[in-house]
Amino acid sequence: MATTDSAQRSGELARTKIIEVAFEHFARHGYKGSSLARIAADAEISQSGLLHHFRTKQALLQAVLATRDLRDMAVTGTGLDELSAMDFDRLLSFFEDVVRHNVTNRPMIRLAHLAAAEADGPDHPAYEWVTGRQRFLRSLIEAALERDIAAGAVRPDIDPRAMTSLLIATMDGLESQWLLEADLDTVASFTYFTAWLRASVEPAG
């Protein structure tokens, strides 16, 4: 039993190290520019050892992206049920917290943007992750706006779909600019935008 437990812990540690190293490689070189041989070498494991944990490069990328999502949720301390129940104002505050966190983790943002740039079709292993993330964000924001319109907390003439597109485009666009210009104050820019957004949707009177 002790030997089995020790082997299991050793396997978990090896898997964790591979994901950490792969995270850096995919964030720096993208999926196409990364190789299992280089990842294995930096993780101090043989390539066959790496393939024992992740049978393909596609499987490794998907594990890295899943780890990224788990870390995002852990940092915010917000569960999916709580997130789905937020009104639009609280959701904007949540996104402000996310932006503040993101500027402390450049590799995490690079990974997401490289994955989105490369995943140009269903044959790419990150395609489902990229499109799923977009669908989730869209449904989250649109649902909050629709609930607030029904409750009278948001102007009835606001188009939830158009407002959602504007919000997502601003978050992604600021991150893209920041990846090119590290001194860009994305937090200040985004909070300026959300203040304008709150004022824009507020009912008259």
Rank of each mutant, 00 (worst) to 15 (best):
A2K: 11
A2H: 14
A2N: 13
T3H: 15
D5Y: 08
Q8M: 07
R9W: 13
E12P: 07
E12R: 12
R15P: 01
T16C: 10
K17V: 08
I18G: 00
F26A: 00
F26E: 00
A27W: 03
H29V: 05
S34N: 05
L36K: 03
R38Q: 12
I45R: 07
S46H: 11
Q47R: 12
Q47I: 06
G49D: 04
G49I: 02
G49T: 04
L50H: 00
L51E: 13
H52S: 09
H53C: 02
R55L: 08
Q58I: 06
V64A: 04
L65Q: 03
T67M: 14
D69N: 08
D69C: 06
L70R: 15
A74V: 12
V75Q: 14
L80I: 09
D81W: 09
E82Y: 08
F88Y: 08
D89G: 06
D89M: 06
R90Q: 15
S93A: 11
E96G: 03
E96A: 05
V98R: 07
V99N: 02
H101E: 11
T104D: 14
R106T: 02
R106D: 01
M108P: 05
H113D: 07
A117L: 08
A117I: 06
E118K: 04
A119I: 00
G121S: 06
A126H: 00
E128T: 06
W129H: 11
W129S: 04
V130A: 03
T131R: 06
R133K: 14
L137F: 14
L145H: 09
E146T: 06
R147F: 10
R147L: 05
R147N: 09
G152H: 05
V154T: 05
V154D: 01
P156C: 07
D159E: 10
T164L: 03
L166K: 08
A169R: 13
G173W: 01
G173E: 03
L174P: 02
W178A: 01
L179I: 06
L180K: 08
L180H: 12
D183F: 10
L184D: 09
V187S: 03
A188W: 04
T191Y: 10
R198W: 11
A199L: 12
A199V: 12
S200N: 08
V201P: 01
P203C: 02
